[in-house]
């Protein structure tokens, strides 16, 4: 079995609104799968389905060969899925350290003392050590994004779901994040699904690339080939045409 994460014909959405329609794809062990697609196509929704904030109305989500479609979020985290939020959602009234401690204790199942070491390491990797005792609500956007990654790492995931962690950052910050993600893959053997807006650098940073359009996988495969394909170009052109028309 080569896929750590597998979507099989998944339909999912919010209330009666269906966002994901017959979505199927795989993320292979130890690989980075990049995910692109126009705004509102359902990328974040796909993560919500992975972690269990929403349940598929049909189809299956398999993790490590097991059908997790009906599991609670906590159970999925215990199995090894860690996620970040596109719009950071830190525990605002807790310190940066406590934020990561929550995931090390509840996600990875450590005692508070063991968890403190995991948290220390995660804060080190993400460059937040100096800010460990600050209240998370007081952080800048960049630090909030770092905290998202640190918190997801605190759960000691096998599969890391990154939702636009580079968006809104400046060039040098993006380089840092790119390097961090590459290290997580090579040094820790994490499997990573990485949503990012079309950035040329994604081609070099990912092992496979998927483009989602209207909740359905449009194309998945070699990053270069996907990025250069006519379908992807059309989806993005279509999207920007609409934006031009709307403006």
């Amino acid at each position: 079995m080569a896929a750590l994460l597998r979507f099989e014909h998944v339909d999912a959405g919010y209330g009666n609104v269906r966002i994901l329609e017959d979505l199927s794809f795989e993320a292979e062990y130890g690989q980075i799968l990049g995910v692109i697609g126009p705004n509102g196509c359902g990328k974040t929704t796909m993560f919500n389905a992975c972690i269990g904030h929403i349940t598929p109305t049909s189809g299956h989500i398999l993790f490590d060969g097991k059908d997790i479609s009906k599991f609670s979020p906590a159970k999925r985290v215990h199995m090894g899925i860690g996620r970040t939020y596109q719009v950071p959602r830190p525990f605002e009234n807790m310190s940066v350290f406590e934020n990561v401690l929550v995931s090390a204790v509840h996600g990875a199942g450590h005692t508070e003392r063991q968890g403190a070491r995991i948290a220390e390491e995660a804060l080190g990797i993400t460059g937040l050590t100096e800010k460990a005792e600050l209240i998370a609500g007081s952080l800048t956007l960049l630090d909030r994004k770092r905290l998202e990654i640190a918190r997801a790492l605190g759960t000691e995931p096998k599969l890391l779901l990154l939702d636009e962690v580079a968006a809104g950052l400046i060039e040098t910050e993006i380089k840092d994040i790119m390097k961090l993600v590459a290290d997580l893959k090579s040094k820790r053997g994490l499997t990573i699904v990485w949503i990012e807006h079309v950035i040329e650098t994604m081609v070099g940073a990912t092992d496979a690339l998927m483009c989602i359009s209207e909740g359905h996988e449009l194309l998945i495969g070699d990053p270069r080939a996907v990025m250069d394909s006519r379908e992807v170009e059309e989806v993005y052109l279509g999207a920007s045409d609409e934006e031009v028309n709307a403006a």
């Binding site: 906590a74 985290v77 939020y85």
Partner: peptide, 8 residues
């Protein structure tokens, strides 16, 4: 929601 996504 976020706490559930961290395993709580």
């Amino acid at each position: 929601d976020a706490s559930a996504a961290m395993g709580v």
